[in-house]
């Protein structure tokens, strides 16, 4: 193996494990210090999914589960680029997303929010980045929904993202938010991120990728953990 060492999670921008305003962390966050170990073969590799045949509509949530018509709500395009801290693009990496529908209702059986399901919208999708690390999804802008964390708690509009990157140190699960959402200032999950990191989770409206007569465009870029060598990671 080479001498590549991947950077650790940057605590200036990542949320702490225990964040008591987000109540579920209280009994679920590890309490003992993490044990620092050397990165070996397992840490420097990860699943690649290169041979997985994605469906032709997997990236288009407005079409990938229609039953009898089009899903309701505001169509959007979400695009961006996946790079690492060194500025290198991460090509051919898997991105998975899931989200509520336009009414703020998840398909998930556990979600009992009294808002309508949309028979033509599942709210799940995935794609691979291209050779330059770019990705693009078509979907419906998700609605806000209430949750039980505290009195009158509402989650801001968000899309869940899961990324693999170059190896398992790069693994990232996060949420993309929308600019100008008044709920962000009250959301303990978003506010669990240190102030320096919060803007990084808010997508930007992008007229240049807005498709005329079709869908509004939002840009959301990812930066995964980088490494100590300015050469392409294996």
């Amino acid at each position: 193996m080479s001498n590549i060492i991947y950077n650790r999670f940057d605590e200036e921008v990542h949320p702490p494990r225990l964040s008591p305003d987000y109540k579920s962390t209280v009994l679920r966050a590890p309490t003992k210090p993490l044990v620092v170990i050397k990165q070996s073969l397992n840490e420097l590799t990860g699943p690649l999914f290169g041979d997985f045949n994605l469906g032709s509509l997997d990236h288009d949530l407005t079409k990938n589960s229609v039953k009898n018509g089009e899903p309701l709500g505001e169509r959007i395009v979400v695009h961006g680029r996946v790079i690492n801290e060194n500025g290198q693009p991460i090509p051919h990496t898997l991105i998975e997303i899931w989200q509520a529908n336009a009414a703020g209702r998840y398909v998930h059986k556990v979600d009992q929010h009294d808002a309508p399901l949309d028979p033509n919208f599942l709210g799940a999708g995935r794609c691979m980045t291209d050779e330059n690390g770019n990705y693009k999804f078509y979907t419906i802008k998700p609605g806000a929904y209430p949750w039980g964390n505290h009195y009158n708690a509402w989650r801001p509009n968000h899309i869940h993202f899961s990324l693999f990157g170059a190896n398992i140190t790069n693994r990232l699960v996060t949420q993309m938010y929308f600019p100008g959402d008044p709920l962000l200032q009250y959301d303990p999950i978003f506010l669990g991120v240190p102030p320096k990191g919060r803007e990084l989770l808010i997508s930007q409206f992008d007229l240049s990728i807005t498709e005329p007569h079709f869908a509004l465009g939002y840009r959301f870029d990812f930066v995964l953990r980088g490494h100590n060598q300015n050469v392409q990671a294996p």
């Binding site: 998930h108 949420q175 300015n230």
Partner: peptide
């Protein structure tokens, strides 16, 4: 090592509704 790429994108919870995705 903080390079040209900028800060790491912060993590957020997988939440309770990951299953269908």
């Amino acid at each position: 090592h903080r390079g040209l790429g900028g800060y790491q994108t912060p993590s957020q919870t997988v939440g309770p509704y990951f299953a269908y995705g």
